[in-house]
Amino acid sequence: MFVVIAIIIGVASLIGGYIAIHHEDLSVAIIASGLVSLFASILFLLLAAPDVAMTEAAIGSGLTTLIFFYVLNKIRQRND
C-alpha cells in the first residue's frame, strides 16, 4: 500500500519538477516547485522521518515559495 503511494508521489513530484523548470509563466513554475517540496515532505513521512517532514513542509513549500513571489513581484513592479 505504502509502496503504491510512494510511486504515485514520486511520479507526481517529477512531473512537478518538469513543470517548474520548463513552464514559461514564472508564477506557475514557482507554484510547481512548492508542490515538489510538498510531495517530498510526504515522501519523508513515508521514510519514517517525521521531523524532516515537518521542517520541509513549513520551509520548503511555505517560506521559500513566498520569498520567490516577493522577488518576482518586485521585478514585475520595476518592469511596469
Binding site: 510512494a6 510511486i7 515522501l43 521514510l47
Partner: peptide, 8 residues
C-alpha cells in the same frame, strides 16, 4: 520503498 525514494 527506499528504492523508489532514492530513484525519485
Amino acid at each position: 520503498m527506499e528504492y523508489i525514494a532514492i530513484s525519485t
